[in-house]
Design a protein around this nucleic acid. Structure first.
Length: 731
RNA sequence: GGACCCGUAGCUCAGUUGGUUAGAGCGUUACAUUGACAUUGUAGAGGUCAGAGGUUCGAGUCCUCUCGGGUCCACCA
């Protein structure tokens, strides 16, 4: 049994990865962060899986009933984009298929990806309980998500309405602030004059207000001009009106402290429909809301001749028009960061849309309490503060997405009502003509068109994976989770949500320990990404150096919160190093177990050799029976065992793996084995004893090799997984 | 603007509560090796631990500042 696949199948088929609900052992539960249903395993996943698996295997050997629960996330936007691209290749589209057929095809497509994701996990040796595998869109999760929605709804935490949201015109849905990123872009800053009404003919004194803008195409929807209170330059215009240079509408001049005094010209055009700040100012000043840009990123009919044009092409033409009107005083080059969609890098258009929201204040407050009182152990520890700070400044959560792939919003309307195609339904939460239900309330009801934000279901993951809201035995036994791991970039999107949601529904923390691993970057410190093409496939390393060596290489970078700079070369270096280590260990085993000298005593059962150091007068027994070399190596092993155990318990995998590596190569092989050659027959039982113990200590990190070598012992359990972790005191 | 992290050998990084000559891998130098293992062994070179100041009997480790690199959040008219 040398092939990794073969070993993995042996473990899985023997049921060694399964948690045992009936066991009387203490439990240890680990929740695998569900990878997105989009593609291959990347190096970050490989790191997470290596860490999770080492801890799971360590606890299993220690005698815990371990649950390592696998699952996959449907990943709304990400999957939908991937699938739509696939459809395009087949000359199909959403429009051609319609929702029902599209979903049917999507579920088929899902199967293929799903299998590849699942397969990748097995390559890393992940000892997950596959009998409990979940998918975030399966039936049980559907029920759980519905319960979540219903409870929020009943508790008055859910509301719906037209609000300004971050809109991605390409994904064609609202997204959250957290799903945006910023890109430096070189644009133009245009200085535009708004004539003061009724003073147009005066030559003396300033009769216009000049504003600076990067978005002249939205001037059509300007409904005010504002400046900071008591601004010396503009104070005199308060209460007057200015003329919108494009629409010729008279719009008010207002004061608001949210306008920065020294930014631009000091005056700001207010476009409530297309800017978050403007929206808030407009709301407080009861300004009219006009739309100049629609959800496709095209200009609307209020822009007259520009109607239907895309923003970029319209912008220049609008500028030209302003120029001919004499309203453009100057333009400057301007570099600033622009919000883009993190998925498709399209510029975000803030606009007003009918969406669903969750009031999160109460949830956040509970989460802060849990972090403070219930003491979730964060690694690194400063993440408790980072998360608390965010929770203290939290905004309401927009949970609706205009997609088809996801949990459909469980709200139904009588189908007699016409629906505005752009705006959606106008029903308000609490109105009598809508019902919250998983299934249709009757024959003439139509379901809300939108789906829930993927993180709405992900946030429920610690509960829904254990069968919640049913009162399951699994939930009672394995919740809260002992261990969770995550990349730092989803600490708000996912981790904070899990804490809020778990606390809201159970009053408990979702996990006892939260481990944030660092990010692996290239040698210049950049993140790995598809667009940069700097990614390193874990599969490349696995093929070249083996799974065990790849895992060992990753443990050296698994320190919480520490980023690592790597390249193909540096990872190859480490891969090679640990592949060499694997060879070394293989040779040790060959020497100890296969190349016994003719006079060597037969391998003695462990219990017998153990008794050498378990006598009542331990020291005396050792002195009489154990030669000095044996005493020395046994002492070193005891120390190593203690240290490795301590590091594993502290989740310092980089130290634990280094410690056992050091012992095996430089103590056991270089010193003890070399010295044992002159007294081989006498040393044989110690050689075997040490080898077996080290295999167990190394197993969490290099599972395949240690199982393979363990099988060479005459006296053994069925699998090394059934062995006991050596105790530090009598090793 | 707010918060946080990092700066240790040529490169990538360790260094647990402050405590003897600061470590690893790769690279590098010399030598050895028909031996369990050349995917090896032995020995070595290589560091004013970014800089300055402070606390201490003692600082890579704690405090302050400076310089350099990075991350997250907010904002970007």
């Amino acid at each position: 049994m040398t092939d990794e696949k073969q070993i993995y199948n042996f473990w899985e088929n023997t049921g060694l990865f399964k948690a045992n609900i009936k066991s009387s052992k203490k439990t240890f539960s680990l929740l695998i962060p569900p990878p997105n249903l989009t593609g291959e395993l990347h190096i970050g996943h490989a790191m997470q899986h290596s860490v999770l698996d080492a801890i799971a295997r360590f606890r299993r050997l220690q005698g815990f009933d371990v649950l390592l629960l696998p699952g996959v996330d449907h990943a709304g936007i990400a999957f939908e984009n991937t699938f739509d691209k696939e459809l395009k290749k087949q000359n199909l589209s959403k429009e051609k298929l319609g929702r029902e057929k599209w979903l049917e095809a999507a579920w088929q497509f899902k199967e293929n990806i799903y299998n590849s994701v699942s397969q990748s996990w097995r390559f890393m040796g992940l000892s997950a309980d596959w009998s409990q595998e979940v998918f975030s869109l399966d039936e049980k999760r559907k029920t759980a998500v519905f319960h979540q929605f219903k409870k929020y709804y009943d508790d008055g935490l859910i509301y719906k309405g037209p609000y300004i949201v971050q809109w991605c015109p390409k994904c064609n849905t609202a997204i959250e602030d957290l799903e945006m990123e910023y890109e430096e872009k070189k644009e133009k800053l245009y200085y535009v004059r708004y004539q003061v009404k009724g003073q147009g003919s005066k030559v003396k004194g300033q009769n216009f207000i000049e504003i600076a803008t990067t978005r002249p195409e939205t001037i059509f929807a300007d409904t005010a001009v504002a400046f900071y209170r008591n601004h010396p330059k503009f104070k005199k215009f308060v209460g007057q009106k200015v003329i919108n240079p494009l629409t010729k509408n008279a719009i008010p001049v207002i004061e608001d402290k949210r306008v920065e005094k020294d930014f631009g010209t000091g005056a700001l055009k207010i476009t409530p429909a297309h800017d978050i700040l403007d929206y808030q100012i407009g709301k407080d000043h009861k300004l009219e809301i006009l739309h100049a840009v629609n959800k496709e990123g095209r200009l609307t009919d209020i822009t007259g001749e520009f109607c239907g044009q895309k923003i970029d092409e319209a912008k220049e033409k609008v500028v030209e028009k302003l120029r001919t009107l004499g309203a453009l005083s100057k333009e400057e080059d301007y570099i600033h960061s622009v919000a883009v969609c993190e998925r498709c890098k399209t510029t975000i258009e803030p606009l007003i849309s009918e969406e669903w929201f969750v009031r999160v204040e109460k949830l956040a407050k509970g989460a802060i309490d849990v972090i403070k009182k219930d003491k979730i152990k964060f690694l690194p520890s400063n993440y408790a503060k980072i998360l608390t700070d965010w929770l203290n400044n939290i905004h309401d959560w927009c949970i609706s997405r205009s997609l088809w792939w996801g949990h459909r919003i469980p709200v139904w309307y009588p189908s007699t009502r016409e629906v505005h195609p752009e705006r959606g339904r106008r029903a308000r939460s609490g109105s009598s003509d809508m019902k919250v239900s998983l299934d249709p309330p009757g024959p003439d009801w139509k379901q809300d068109e939108q789906v829930l934000d993927t993180w709405f279901s992900s946030g429920l993951w610690p509960l829904s994976t254990l069968g919640w809201p049913d009162k399951t035995k699994e939930f009672d036994r394995y919740f809260p989770w002992d261990f969770e791991i995550s990349a730092p970039e989803i600490k708000y999107l996912w981790i904070a949500r899990m804490v809020m949601i778990s606390n809201y529904f159970t009053g408990k923390k979702p996990f006892k320990t939260m481990f944030f691993h660092g990010t692996l970057r290239d040698l210049e410190g950049r993140k790995f990404s598809k667009s940069l093409g700097n990614g390193i496939e874990p599969q490349y390393l696995i093929d070249k150096w083996g799974t065990d060596a790849t895992r060992m290489a990753l443990y050296t970078y698994s320190i919480p919160g520490r980023d690592g700079r790597v390249s193909k070369e540096t990872l190859d270096e480490r891969g090679k190093n640990f592949r060499n280590f694997a060879t070394k260990l293989r040779n040790i085993a060959r020497f100890v177990l296969e190349l016994k000298p003719p006079g060597a005593s037969h391998s003695r059962p462990d219990r017998e050799s153990d008794s050498h150091f378990r006598g009542n007068d331990k020291e005396a027994v050792e002195k009489v029976i154990m030669p000095k070399d044996d005493q020395w190596i046994m002492g070193k092993l005891a120390k190593t065992t203690k240290t490795v155990t301590k590091h594993l318990e502290n989740l310092e995998l980089h130290l634990a793996s280094e410690e056992i590596y050091e012992f095996i190569w430089h103590k056991f092989a270089d010193d003890y084995i070399e010295a044992s050659k002159s007294r081989r027959p006498e040393a044989q039982s110690t050689l075997e004893n040490i080898l077996k113990q080290t295999l167990i200590l190394l197993h969490p990190f290099m599972p395949f090799l240690t199982e393979e070598l363990y099988q060479k012992f005459e006296d053994k359990q069925k699998s090394i997984l059934l062995e006991k972790w050596p105790s530090a005191t009598n090793a």
